[in-house]
Amino acid sequence: MTVEIPIEKWAAKVREVTLGATAAQGGTRTRTVTVGGEGTLPFLSHEGSLPHSPALALEVRDRKPDDWSPLLYRAWGEAMDDPGDWAKAAEAAGADLIYLVFSSTMADGRPNTGENARSVVRKVLGATGLPLAVIGPGQAELDNELIVPAAEEAKGERVMLGICEDKNYRTIVASAMANDHLVQSKTPMDVNLSKQLVILIHDMGMPLERIIMDPTTGALGYGIEYGYSVMERLRLAALQGDTMTQQPMLVNPGEEAWKVKESKVGEGVPAVWGDWERRALAWESVTATTLLLSGADVLILRHPETLKRIRSVLDGLRAPA
């Protein structure tokens, strides 16, 4: 007996967004990364076109972070002491993209400066040929202080600047427009807010081809189902033709998964939880895999081993039937 597989016909598709610029495009990246373009729901390749694989980014900090899990320190080792080395190691680990995040303070405890941001960007651009995201520490004033010079330093490289949020997006968008970059638009798990911020950023004159939206997610066991459902609805709306939801989606399972107790803590937890490292990696991997299924186009990860696992998940899901 043959089973007829029902095929859904969608009215529209997700917008394509390209990060990075090669020498021919006025930058210095050795390659670019294009995401988006989906004409159907994730991995339903029999139903519509899925031209690009979701991109996997590794998070790199401008300096060794103070509060990461010891497991991550172990995984990256000395590379964490220098953002250039770290980026190189991330490239070697198989990342498509470097997600460079500035800390709010410098190693000596003083507030981070634009001068430092510039030099870190220069160093990371020199160390890796991958496209880059350049992200502030998440405090409006400091973000602007750091991102504006960093954006200038990376002019022409088509980096993604962030994070644009409802209360603070104008300066970052302006510096992205002035230096031909992209922006990450982040809203707290709400379809309409996602849409609204995209509209507001677009209203400033930013082309939609340069906006990636971050609908925000939670880790496994910490609200991922809520985030999942928001992403699912955004993607359904996009495919149904709601143009302001058609941006590729970025989420940060690395940050979310590594701040929960299950992955962060190795001592004083029930023995039945099992091996710490195994558990932590599973937490990040399952969170990330779930998000792929809900339509993520860019995943930010922290552990190189997770990246390997997700790559293999992707290879499996994208393999021809």
């Binding site: 504006v148 200038e152 104008r170 300066t171 302006a174 510096s175």
Partner: peptide, 12 residues
């Protein structure tokens, strides 16, 4: 121009 422009665009 770029420095002032950003401030004009972002509303400062």
């Amino acid at each position: 121009l770029r420095s002032w422009g950003i401030q004009l665009v972002d509303g400062r």
